[in-house]
Amino acid sequence: MNLDINGKTFQIDADPTTPLLYILRDQLQLNGAKFGCGLGQCGACTVIVDKQPVFSCITPVSALQGRKIRTIEGLGTLENPGPVQRAFIEEQAAQCGYCIPGMMMRAQALLEQNPAPSKSDIRRYMNANLCRCGTHMRILRAVERAAAFVKDGGKGGTAG
């Protein structure tokens, strides 16, 4: 079976009931999406499928043929981080960071649907994802900052 991930096609050899998360992590070595609960309750595994945030821990790969999957590795790199990644760095919006890739993918989906979300839009949209370190205030600020970057055509923001 073929999967379209971050704009590339991957040939996958797996039981079709396997949740996407395990394919991403174990077969493709895309580490961004994390195992948190395996139950669709915490959002650590969030990726984007077409335009929607999806819990990859409960989404079987059989449901994903022909659909566009995006993970945090598709948002940018260490050397060239994308707007959402830059915003999270500038707001120092991480403690342990384990939930953060899922947070960023949900934020990315929000900003694609609504480039100028209000504070309450952001809270409502991010509500599906759990953070245990209590980094919420910084995550909310980072999403606002990312929205500002996107508004600037993805070029905004200066370090520091």
Partner: peptide, 20 residues
């Protein structure tokens, strides 16, 4: 800025969960 955050927001393998 924390030295560990850039790798965490770009999906680098840094957690023991990522060790392969």
């Amino acid at each position: 800025q924390r030295v560990d955050i850039p790798a965490k927001v770009t999906g680098r393998a840094i957690y023991v969960q990522d060790l392969r």
